[in-house]
Computed example of a mutant assay.
Amino acid sequence: MNEAEITREVDARGEKCPVPILRAKKALATMESGQVLRVLATDPAAVGDFRFFSRQTGNTLLDQTESDGEYTIYLKRK
């Protein structure tokens, strides 16, 4: 993902479910359609949680990556 495409970032590293989702939901509520949110998380459950969140909310899950126990999730605001 190109840095220029990212509108906002939520750093939820060290937080457990449901905090990463709640922070992402709050950030997405302030964003415009088509903007991209990057979420940083360390909770392995975040991977599945954000897949479910995306299906439930209609926001697009663009990508999920993992490196050294840190998950990066990219969501596009519907």
Rank of each mutant, 00 (worst) to 15 (best):
E15R: 09
S33I: 13
V19C: 12
T57I: 11
T7L: 01
D49N: 15
G48A: 14
E66V: 12
L61K: 07
L40H: 07
R38T: 00
N2L: 09
G48E: 11
L28G: 01
S67R: 12
L75Y: 13
V10I: 03
I73Q: 07
G34P: 05
L61Q: 13
V36W: 06
P18T: 10
L61C: 06
G69Q: 00
M1R: 14
V36H: 13
K26S: 04
A24V: 00
M31I: 01
D43V: 02
K25A: 15
E9W: 11
N2Y: 15
K76Q: 14
K16R: 11
T65R: 13
K26N: 13
L40N: 02
T57D: 10
M1G: 05
E3D: 10
V47F: 09
A4D: 13
K16Y: 10
L75G: 06
V36F: 03
T72S: 04
L22Y: 11
S54D: 03
D43G: 01
M1Y: 12
R23E: 07
Y71R: 08
R51N: 10
P18K: 14
G14E: 02
T72V: 03
L62T: 03
N2S: 12
A29P: 01
T30V: 10
V39G: 05
V10E: 04
F53N: 07
D63K: 15
T57H: 14
A46I: 02
D11M: 03
R55L: 07
D49F: 09
V47C: 00
T42H: 01
R8G: 03
P44T: 04
E32Q: 15
S33P: 11
N2E: 09
L75H: 06
L61S: 08
V39R: 01
A45G: 13
I21V: 04
S54V: 14
E3I: 14
I73S: 12
